[in-house]
Every structure is written in C-alpha cells, then in structure tokens.
C-alpha cells in the first residue's frame, strides 16, 4: 500500500520460534507473570516484529527472500509477512 506521497511501502515481518523449540525467554516471562499473581498465564512465546520501509514496487516475494536470507533462521523460526 502506498502512503500519501506514493513513494514508500511498509512491510511488517513477524518472526516466532517454531513449535517444539525451547523459548527460555518466554518461559522466564511466564514465571515473572506468575510471580506477579497473573495465575491465568499458561504459556508465553516471545518473538520479533520487524518493520520495513520499502521503495514503491517492492513485492512480498522480495520480503520473503529477505526473511529466508537474513531476517529469520528457518531452522528454528517461522515468519509471516504483512504488506502495507
């Protein structure tokens, strides 16, 4: 989607650890929430969000290539791309 000037596109990449990969940071956050009395928390998984400003004309395929090459490590992480 273009902004008002029609120059810049936004893409948002969500990166999460795959199921079955231990997430010690998520686990620590879960413990901390429990310690604060938030008893309803059964599990926490922590991921990353990366926002990209792109030239007009960049495609979802371009962002997917960026994920595969650098932004995500697909051995342990899954990603999703949102354009606009």
């Amino acid at each position: 989607m273009k902004n008002n000037e029609g120059q810049i596109m936004k893409a948002t990449v969500h990166i999460m650890l795959k199921n079955g990969v231990l997430d010690p940071q998520g686990e620590a956050v879960r413990h901390a929430l429990g310690a604060l009395g938030f008893d309803s928390v059964q599990g926490v998984r922590q991921g990353k969000v990366i926002e990209l400003d792109l030239d007009e004309g960049a495609t979802e395929a371009d962002v997917t290539a960026m994920c595969e090459k650098l932004l995500a490590n697909t051995v342990i992480e899954s990603y999703s791309v949102e354009m606009g």
């Binding site: 990969v21 231990l22 010690p24 940071q25 620590a28 490590n73 051995v75 342990i76």
Partner: peptide, 11 residues
C-alpha cells in the same frame, strides 16, 4: 554447519 545455537536454557 547444521543446527543453531539458542539462548542458554538457564538464561
């Protein structure tokens, strides 16, 4: 090399 190095389990 295969695999990856994750954060230490004990953080």
């Amino acid at each position: 090399l295969p695999g990856v190095l994750l954060r230490n389990a004990g953080l």
